[in-house]
Design a protein around this nucleic acid. Structure first.
Length: 959
DNA sequence: ATCCTCCCCTAC
DNA sequence: TAAGGTAGGGGAGGAT
């Protein structure tokens, strides 16, 4: 059989050509797969060849959404109505744009559509679909991006800033104001914020009154919502009205204020009010802190943007509209000189898009008066009473010119640049601007990877190619003026237009070069380093500028040269020499980087591996109860995060920072951690869990093993690992595979093998006793029921004996819906993109007898590849499986099962790509996708790629 | 060999 | 006042 299959792979023989059984190919193996396999709950049934129309309609059309969720017929039982995807995309696109900032426009747009104007009547039929899509999208935004759906315009034009502790709490007020058309400001913005909302006079006392600041009680918001209109704020002033005050007391405002604040002060000292300085002993500390932490924000935003990009992939958003517009607008533009250089054939153009001092730029949008000045975003105002220990999150180029750096203390920055203007954070705006940036790029190509909230990689090769030769009416003209720089400038222009922020773009043949090029693009420019220039370009870069080379690495490299050494200087060292200092991987990476080599992909499928909460600020405990309480708060945060990620954890790690013995008890930075020793302890969570109570119990146990006085603690963090999807209905493919092949517990391969070995021994003994029904227990049911389908308990051999296959598989049907299709994302088997690891895993897996879960996983992975059009990967995947059959460890039954799997793929392939007799030859003989050819060629050019065919599995994204 | 634990490092 | 988070890669050295 192996030989035959190898023959097939070489294209010399048809699959199963010598099959004894006659008949049409889809009957070679009777009842190979039950009809239920890829159907679910009455959707997309596939009973036989004749009632197959719905299925093939969905599968075969490139312009149709494969995921059944979108295709819902109004009249059940009839065939699906044609859906105008172009229209829906346009609506979606417009909707998304308008959701951004302008409630008025959105309201108008929705109203416009509701009234059925605009398009022909016939298209209104799709409106239900549109609403459905839109709801899904909003739902996603609420969950993922924390957005709030607007329900009225009570607060149109009104913005609030919540100062201090209020009831209802700030979060509540925020959602109220946002959902009723107003804006929520995390910071008071001069001239912009309409009202400051506060409950406590003491709070207002602490923050100095601003000119024209109107401070109201939270009831203004609550009552206005209840009344359905904006009530008069005069009724809700926290402090008595200024005029009335004067009238009544005949004194000055400041006198009045004084009286009031004295009262408040008394209240505070009586302990009626919360204390001003908050530290980790406070129950509300974490939320309060997160609301103001820039580092928390950038971490969170990065994660949100990655999620956002993948949600865009899932929604099958169209790139055609934006590309068409681009074509239109570029037509009028004619570039000359270096800017018009075109992309040489066979060369890739990777963009590294990065906004210039993001936080500052966002502020500058509304502060034109600050343009051209040294500006820094920071908590501290940099004025008198502040000590200036606040860190600068972002500073303008004017400030940088004077030596101010991101991360500098305000105090130091002011010394270097006395006219530095300090501006507050605008957390909400960073989020919305960030999203706009990704919208701009993603509307043109989905070949992108979000690095952070203001930075991404884009594989612009195909985008550029789609305009190649544009110049002369359909004739390919290699001297076309539409090259990488033109495209980059166009995209930069769009970002500027939509967000008001300047972006720079570095362009190179790989992400590494693109990233380094960005340094030269900034500010507000483009730099393209062509392939032929890479060698020289990299040679002149400082080693310290390479990504991944930080403080420590640079120190370790001390013996190879000074801190300013160039990559070129480092080339004389052998990889082995570097290894001694840096370790194997890092040395290898560096060795390649200083030569400009980088084979990383722009689009990578990543599965979340850990979730953590660390707080190393404000930790000042005096009693153990405070610590215990804090751990409990941390656990609640983690619970929330896990829930959001739809994960459960199998491992927990506690990290604490303890004041170093010789460090001062009080840190220079207020409530900072100072110099510390760190300690780590980890433990298992078995069974996997996601609820705060269990988490805190584990954390407390771990904490107990670290003998550190509570007063000396300066930082605490909990990390959760060995993540496992928490519910099978909403599980991304990769995570599911991860789970399935994870090392832990019941379903784990390792334990499975051990178990099996023991069982084999037992069975042998039993067999000697001669027993008929040899049953061995299947995988136990997991906590959340993933393996609870009855079929899974029956060994494959029982099916084989009856010449049948199980009707249901490890992979729930509902999972098929959430597979983003079609997608250009690399699909890796079990989270491994490394070929040899993959093969190892396959062998491990096939050491167990075939079972429905195992069979299902292999089959499903192949099916996903087919759907994505990654047929080359499918071929390689099949080859890996077939080669694995060589291993002596492979269990009986896989010969047979492998054939079933291949046969099934064959059928799926022919359904999807019409009649294709032999998928394994497909990419050689047809022109179904030129990209594949390009990808092959690119691969051959790669100097370093290992060419051992056995161990290299390649996946090629297809546009 | 490979994994596990307890770190360290890096990036934004 | 200030708000020093978070996820992932990787290494050393011991355990399996």
């Amino acid at each position: 059989i192996l030989n035959q299959m190898e023959g097939v792979l070489d294209g010399e023989m048809k699959l199963y050509a010598d099959e004894d059984e006659p008949g049409p190919s889809n009957q070679i193996i009777p009842r190979v797969v039950s009809p239920e396999l890829f159907t679910g709950d009455g959707e997309l049934t596939r009973d036989d060849e004749t009632t197959n129309t719905q299925w093939s309609a969905v599968v075969n059309s490139r312009d149709t959404v494969d995921a059944p969720m979108i295709i819902d017929s109004d009249e059940p039982g009839t065939s699906k109505p044609p859906v105008d995807f172009a229209l829906m995309r346009r609506w979606l696109h417009e909707g998304a744009e308008q959701e951004e900032n302008d409630g008025r426009r959105r309201g108008a747009a929705v109203g416009w559509m509701m009234e059925g104007r605009g398009d022909e009547k016939g298209q209104l039929r799709s409106f239900g679909h549109y609403m459905r899509l839109k709801k899904d999208k909003l739902q996603h935004q609420v969950n993922v991006l924390g957005r709030v759906k607007q329900v009225s315009e009570i607060f149109k034009g009104i913005s609030i800033f919540v100062n201090g502790f209020t009831y209802p709490p700030a979060l509540e007020l925020r959602s109220l104001i946002q959902s009723h058309g107003g804006e929520y400001h995390v910071y008071y913005e001069y001239g912009t914020t309409t009202y400051t909302v506060a409950s406590e006079i003491a709070t207002v006392k602490r923050s100095k009154m601003r000119k024209n600041e109107v401070i109201v009680k939270p009831e203004l918001i609550v009552d206005s919502v209840a009344a359905g209109r904006l009530l008069d704020h005069k009724e809700y002033l926290l402090l008595p009205d200024e005029d009335e005050m004067l009238r009544r007391k005949g004194g000055t405002i400041s006198q009045a204020m004084k009286t009031l604040t004295e009262k408040a002060g008394e209240a505070e000292t009586r302990g009626e009010k919360r204390q001003g300085a908050m530290d980790a002993r406070d129950a509300a500390f974490i939320d309060e802190y997160y609301a103001r932490s820039r580092l928390h924000l950038i971490s969170t935003l990065a994660q949100e943007m990655r999620d956002y990009v993948s949600s865009l992939r899932d929604t099958n958003s169209s790139i055609e509209t934006a590309r068409a517009e681009m074509s239109e607008r570029l037509k009028e533009r004619s570039e000359e000189g270096a800017n018009s250089r075109s992309l040489p054939p066979m060369e890739r153009a990777i963009f590294h898009v990065d906004l210039d001092c993001f936080f500052v730029s966002v502020t500058l949008r509304n502060r034109p008066d600050l343009r051209g000045k040294p500006v820094a975003v920071t908590h501290s105002s940099g004025s008198k009473e502040s000590n200036g220990f606040s860190e600068i999150a972002s500073c303008s180029y004017e400030a940088r010119a004077k030596g101010v750096k991101n991360g500098s203390l305000v105090r130091d920055a002011l010394r270097k640049c006395c006219d530095l203007v300090c501006v507050p954070y605008q957390f909400d705006d960073y989020r919305s601007v960030s999203k706009m940036i990704f919208d701009v790029i993603a509307s043109h190509t989905l070949q992108l990877r979000a690095v952070s909230c203001d930075e991404m990689y884009v594989d612009a090769t195909s985008l550029i190619r789609s305009f190649d030769g544009y110049g002369s009416e359909g004739v390919v003209d290699s001297h076309s003026s539409i090259g990488p720089i033109v495209i980059a400038n166009y995209l930069r222009g769009l970002i500027r237009e939509r967000t008001g922020c300047p972006a720079s773009v570095g362009i190179g043949p790989n992400p590494l070069v693109a990233r380094l090029a960005t340094r030269f693009a900034k500010p507000d420019g483009v730099k393209w380093v062509q392939k032929r220039e890479v060698e020289e370009f990299i040679a002149n870069q400082k080693v310290s500028d390479l990504p991944g080379v930080g403080y420590s690495t640079l120190n370790k490299l001390g013996e190879f040269g000074g801190a300013d050494m160039k990559c070129g200087d480092m080339r004389k060292f052998e990889e082995k020499e570097l290894e001694g200092v840096l370790g194997k991987k890092t040395a290898h990476l560096l060795y390649r980087m200083i030569r400009g080599r980088d084979d990383s992909e722009v689009v990578v499928e990543r599965v979340r591996k850990s979730v953590s909460c660390d707080i190393n600020y404000g930790i000042r405990f005096t009693k153990d109860e405070e610590l215990q309480q804090f751990l409990s708060s941390l656990a609640s945060q983690l619970e929330k995060k896990l829930l959001q990620a739809r994960m459960k954890a199998g491992a927990i790690t506690l990290k604490v920072m303890v004041r170093a013995a010789d460090a001062p008890v009080e840190t220079a930075k207020y409530l900072g951690h100072g110099r510390c020793d760190t300690h780590t302890r980890c433990g298992r969570l078995d069974p996997v869990c996601g609820d705060a109570e269990k988490l805190v119990n584990e954390a407390r146990k771990l904490m107990a093993t670290i003998k550190a006085p509570v007063e000396e603690l300066r930082g605490i963090g909990i990390q959760l690992g060995r993540l496992v999807p928490s519910n099978s209905a909403a599980r991304p493919l990769a995570s599911q595979l991860n789970r399935f092949f994870g090392r832990k517990r019941n379903g784990g391969i390792i334990e499975g093998i051990e178990k099996m070995e023991k069982e084999k021994e037992n069975e042998k003994e039993k067999e000697e006793e001669k027993e008929e029904g040899m049953k061995r227990p299947r995988l136990e049911q997991n906590e959340d029921g993933i393996d609870d389908m009855e079929d899974h308990r029956k060994p494959m051999r029982d099916y084989m004996a009856n010449d049948e296959l199980p009707a249901r598989y490890h992979t729930a049907v509902s999972d098929l819906r959430i597979l983003p299709l079609p997608s250009t994302e690399k699909l890796s088997f079990m989270g491994e993109s490394n070929g040899s690891n993959m093969k190892t895993k396959i062998i491990e897996m096939m050491t167990e007898d075939p079972s429905p879960p195992l069979y299902g996983s292999l089959l499903f992975h192949g099916w996903a590849l087919i759907q994505r059009g990654e047929l080359v990967s499918l071929r390689d995947f099949a080859r890996a499986i077939l080669l694995a059959l060589n291993s002596p460890r492979i269990a009986d039954g896989w010969m047979f099962t492998t054939r079933l799997i291949c046969a099934e793929w064959e059928k799926m392939c022919s359904r999807r790509y019409l009649a294709v007799p032999d998928l394994l030859q497909r990419e050689e003989r047809s022109n179904w996708n030129e990209t594949v050819e390009g990808a092959w060629q690119n691969e051959e050019e790669e100097e370093d790629s290992p060419d051992n065919d056995d161990t290299t599995l390649t996946t090629f994204p297809i546009m």
